[in-house]
């Protein structure tokens, strides 16, 4: 029976296996070590380690890039905490798939676009092109990975009060301590 999973990652077969063996932060591919992320609200669940979180946030930055000078940077507001809040109840198997998906995005430029650098080391324009490749890929699984990551990015960023002036949203009617 064909193995199918949440993101359908099983269909990428051998590439998936190789990538699963790689640490998210591989120094020989230009890894720079983890960036400490302070966005996590105290008390919120931490479901990703620092490096996975950093990689996710690099993807989020491209996904929600508005091009507006006054747009709040995703890392400076509660984006990550909101994403982790959504991930927390999903269960370890799904989180494992998310980690694999992150690695796929990180190393795809090296292995399949023959660039000298992982996703995080590309310029913003090259990152956007790489994501566009995921979005428009002929491989269903790549498109699924793109949309899963896009959904997380949109949830994390556009749920934050600081972003609402950009889109004219007045926010909830009731204000409760969060």
């Amino acid at each position: 029976m064909k193995r199918r999973t949440f993101l359908g990652l099983g269909t990428l077969g051998p590439a998936m296996w190789v990538l699963a063996q790689l640490p998210a932060r591989a120094a020989w591919l230009g890894g720079t070590g983890s960036t400490a992320l302070d966005a996590t609200v105290p008390g919120e669940p931490c479901v990703l380690d620092d490096d996975d979180a950093d990689l996710l946030m690099a993807i989020v930055e491209r996904m929600v890039d508005t091009g507006e000078a006054g747009a709040p940077p995703p890392r400076e507001i509660g984006t990550l905490a909101a994403i982790e809040g959504a991930l927390a109840p999903l269960g370890e198997a799904l989180l494992q798939e998310l980690r694999l998906a992150l690695r796929l995005v990180e190393y795809w430029p090296v292995f399949l676009e023959w660039r000298f650098g992982r996703f995080r080391s590309l310029s913003p324009e090259a990152q956007a092109r790489s994501l566009e490749g995921w979005r428009t890929s002929r491989i269903e699984t790549r498109r699924r990975v793109f949309y899963a990551l896009r959904n997380l990015a949109l949830l994390g960023y556009w749920s934050q009060d600081e972003t609402w002036p950009l889109i004219g949203y007045g926010g909830p009617w009731i204000r409760r301590p969060t």
Partner: peptide, 22 residues
């Protein structure tokens, strides 16, 4: 915002071009 953005096409600046009209 989130539910609307998730029904709009694209990502980054393209998506924001639609969402700014929320």
């Amino acid at each position: 915002p989130v539910l609307t953005a998730s029904t709009l096409p694209g990502f980054g600046r393209e998506l924001f071009g639609y969402l700014r009209d929320l």
